[in-house]
Structures are given as structure tokens and as C-alpha cells.
Amino acid sequence: MTATLDGDGAAYRRLLERLSAHLRSYYRGRLARAGRGAFEAEDLLQEALLAIHTRRHTYDRAELFTPWMYAIARYKLIDHLRRTNASRGDVPIEDADELTSHADHDGVESSIDLGRLMARLPARMQRAIQYVKLDGLSVAEAARRAGMTESSVKINVHRGLKAMSAAIRPEGKS
């Protein structure tokens, strides 16, 4: 994690991949215990990954990483359960098995649509995220192409991801 806070993308990718394996089984287990369908796990996992990313400045390097990460995971789980309390139909046990059996790697599709999430952002944030995070352009390149300053590109990426993290929660009772 420390390496990733300093901007090591490859290390960050490996970290997120490992985390998502842990979190997937964590959420599956918890959702099953709460009597929910495991299909919600992938949504929650993605919500948690975005939260971990946009709030990573709150990780204190002097502390252990795992408790920090699970505190976020638990917070998002409780928030999710509260929000969707009894508002979703339960999946019968027989079907749940089928849903989970082939859904245990990062190729799994969640019900979250990246395109729709992006479409809700202001145009500047959309462009900044598209260039820097999806097309993989350097910040300097993205700034040239979007006609913004470099710091404005960075700010728009940052704010955009935060806005996506907030928008990922489906509307429900609070």
C-alpha cells in the first residue's frame, strides 16, 4: 500500500486484485448470513474498491492496512444493508448457488454500468477521467487534448472519481 500511495500503478493494481479476492468472499459470506443474494456482492465490492481508492488519503502509514480496509468494507456493507433493507426480492437458495458458482474472479460483471455512471458527471470530469484513467494518457497529454491545465486535469479526475463513488450508491431510503 505504501508503494501505491507514492504512485506505483503496477503495485496498486496487484493490491486491488488481491483486495478484491478477499472482499468478494467477505461480502458473499456476510450477504448470505444477512439472507441476501450473493449477486449483490459484486456491486458492493466495486463500491468498496472505489471508496478505498477515493479515501486512500485517510490511511495512516503508521497503522496496519488490513483493519483500515475492512473498516471501509464493513461500513459499506452496513450502509448497503440499511439502504436496501427489504427492498430487494430474495433469491431462492437453489438459484443463489448457480449465481455464485461461476462468479469468483474479476471478470465478473456487476450491475453497475460505468458508462451510465460517467454520463452523470460534468463534461470536464468525464473528459479528464476518459483520457487519464481509461485511455491511459499522461496528465500532460490529457491536458493538451482537453485544453485544460495539468492541475485542472488532476483535480477533475479526483473529483470525478469521488462523485462516481457517491453516485454508485443506488437511491434508497437513507
Binding site: G9, Y12, R13, L16, L49, H53, L114, V132
Partner: peptide
């Protein structure tokens, strides 16, 4: 999602 988050981090 992971790819997106870890690009140009």
C-alpha cells in the same frame, strides 16, 4: 474498474 483505478495513479 481495477484497471481504471490503477491507471496513472
Amino acid at each position: 474498474l481495477i484497471g481504471m483505478l490503477s491507471t496513472n495513479v
